[in-house]
């Protein structure tokens, strides 16, 4: 579904150029549950940003469903993000000015859905994550776990193909974190591709595939899918 070929990302700093990613080749199939792991500064977030088209690579190509989207204009990238990707962040990143319902409605507004349809779907999604009684509450009135569930509902607003989760349990206690992981697994079971950045090896083991990044390079690619691919290549 997603293919990166020779992708590099460099940043120009005062003292010189920093390579955040170096010549990464990566293929992610539909329905995979992939954990991206590595030490701080290894390039995990950069890789997630490239995958989520939140940033553009300095070199290399990006294929989505075999279609090269590398050089598409910004509005097309925005449309692809809106239609195909959902994001879950470590710090939830909900808008404090909007209620839970309005936060979930936001991405549907960019998709052009009319107000009534946005509201109805947002109500449905929030009830699916167990927050039907918190529709009009502001994020500041919610616990971390509840906010992350709102974020999950928001990520699912436009029925995306891929969920990118950057340390989704990082700011949550373990029991709440477990709830979130189970939700992600449940979504994956329904066919949603999950890409999750995590420091936690235990969480990484729950993924089908584990990518290890160090110093901007993909060091290892473990898991069932990886093995199957190697077998095919062989």
């Amino acid at each position: 579904m997603i293919t990166l070929k020779g992708v590099s990302k460099e940043y120009e700093l005062v003292g010189g150029t920093v390579a955040a990613l170096k010549d990464v080749d990566l293929t992610i199939d539909r329905g995979e549950y992939v954990a991206v792991m590595g030490p701080s500064g290894s390039g995990k977030s950069t890789l997630m940003h490239i995958l989520g088209i939140l940033d553009t690579a300095t070199a290399g190509r990006y294929f989505l469903e075999d279609y090269d989207i590398t050089s598409l204009p910004d509005r097309e990238h925005a449309r692809i993000r809106n239609k195909h990707f959902g994001f879950i962040f470590q710090s939830f990143n909900l808008f404090s000015e909007l209620s839970a319902l309005e936060n979930v409605m936001l991405p549907m507004g960019y998709a052009g859905l009319p107000f009534r349809k946005r509201r109805e779907r947002a109500e449905l999604l929030l009830s699916e994550v167990g927050l039907e009684h918190r529709l009009h509450h502001m994020p500041t009135m919610m616990s971390g776990g509840e906010q992350q569930r709102v974020a999950i509902a928001r990520a699912l607003a436009n029925d995306p193909d891929v969920i990118l989760a950057d340390e989704p349990t990082g700011n949550l206690p373990s029991d709440r974190g477990e709830e979130i992981l189970k939700m992600l697994e449940s979504l994956n079971a329904k066919g949603v591709t999950i890409l999750m950045v995590t420091h936690n090896p235990e969480q990484g083991k729950r993924a089908h595939r584990r990518l290890l990044i160090r110093d901007g390079m993909l060091i290892s690619d473990e898991g069932k899918a990886a093995q199957a691919r190697e077998a095919l290549d062989a």
Partner: peptide
């Protein structure tokens, strides 16, 4: 940051 989040959710520069 809010703008970045909006863009992540599908807002174009024009929006």
């Amino acid at each position: 940051k809010g703008v970045g989040i909006m863009m992540a959710l599908g807002a174009s520069r024009r929006a």
